[in-house]
Design a binder for these strands. Sequence first.
DNA 1: TCCCACTTACTGACAAGTCAGTAAGTTGTG
DNA 2: CACAACTTACTGACTTGTCAGTAAGTGGGA
Lengths: 221, 221
Amino acid sequence: MVSVMDDAVPPAAAPKRRARQPRQATTERRAEILRAAANTFGSKGYKNGSLAEVAEQVGITHAGVLHHFGSKEQLLVEVLEYRDKEDVRDLEGQHIPGGLGLFQHLVRTARMNVDRPGIVQGYSVLTGESVTENHPARGWVTDRFRVLRGEIADAVIAVGEGKVSRETADCAASAIIGVMDGLQVQWLLDEDVDLPTSTQFAIEAILAAALLGDDRPHPLD
Amino acid sequence: MVSVMDDAVPPAAAPKRRARQPRQATTERRAEILRAAANTFGSKGYKNGSLAEVAEQVGITHAGVLHHFGSKEQLLVEVLEYRDKEDVRDLEGQHIPGGLGLFQHLVRTARMNVDRPGIVQGYSVLTGESVTENHPARGWVTDRFRVLRGEIADAVIAVGEGKVSRETADCAASAIIGVMDGLQVQWLLDEDVDLPTSTQFAIEAILAAALLGDDRPHPLD
DNA sequence: TCCCACTTACTGACAAGTCAGTAAGTTGTG
DNA sequence: CACAACTTACTGACTTGTCAGTAAGTGGGA
């Protein structure tokens, strides 16, 4: 429960018995379980998704899953870490875009997401669930939003060539993330919503407004 | 399910035994339970919120709750209907705004929401949860989005005085709803996010882009 | 007016199921 | 042969929902 993960920590200065490394098949097995868990938590949610369902997908029992991960909460944490690592790996070849390239990347992502509703649902469900009391993914989701906001705000400032204030950039950044997430939910519930078109429309709109600064009209004051 | 609400309908030509009206205290009691359920489902989610917790808030047992509502799912459905009725009642004095007034109303709502995080959390949790498989609130959430999109798109067209196409208005409408929902989630997780300011910023930006039509720049193509 | 037939609003006990987690035993592999 | 990777068997905590019973209210009729 203190989440030290005994089996993953090589015993520092092991005295008598060295902790054996896991067999080479084990790493892949754990990855299989993580993918199954991501699938289950994505479609059912963390609370409602059961270890038994995760286990069934890889042909073992729920106790087998617990053998590898110790607890359901630890499994969730590792699913999140695994997904992060995958995202990084996907972006490895391409340099991480900044400036205008970042916004193009966001729109491209929205276009890609149309073909992987499972991923989108997993993200949406977990994000929504994370605002409930004491949810184990809350910290992860919060951090993720914070990092993303920072990167997008920097990109806004870069595109604005110093003419955009930090406050405006922060506003724009949270709005861009918000509109992407919000549109995903609507699209999951109703295919009539045009996810890529609306996403591009909104990002362009927010970016344009940020670049205009205080020169733009404020009809809602 | 067709929402005829038997207990409110006086029996037309009752044959032998008239179906009595509910006692006057009953209506208020049921409303108490509905408010408690909205509270619990809002903070814990529907799946994770228990009848026992709802019951405790009004000082009865979970069986007492089931006496009134028959099943947990029916309780959820009535919570949703109750909230709809409350929303309508709140807007009764003021005429439902259209055109620019609607957008001002949306921004005002965002400002008010800062002082009622419980309501916002309930909405966010339920919306996120609704995209899971076979969720009982899915239809309600989907309909709500559809209606809202229609109203906002109409308002965009009204403000644009006929110069905005239906497709653009739809894009703008879903984007506005998306950004409002998405910002709420971020704000719930991190108070640093400025909900009203970001909301107003984004709505003005999207509205401006919609009114410009194809004349605006498309830096992301 | 008072009483009887009936309904409403519960309670407490329990059924039936699901869940995470544990402990002990088995198998196969390095 | 020791240990990793399981399985089987089980516990205890919680779930929703059912049921019988009870006290309190309500309306109509004598």
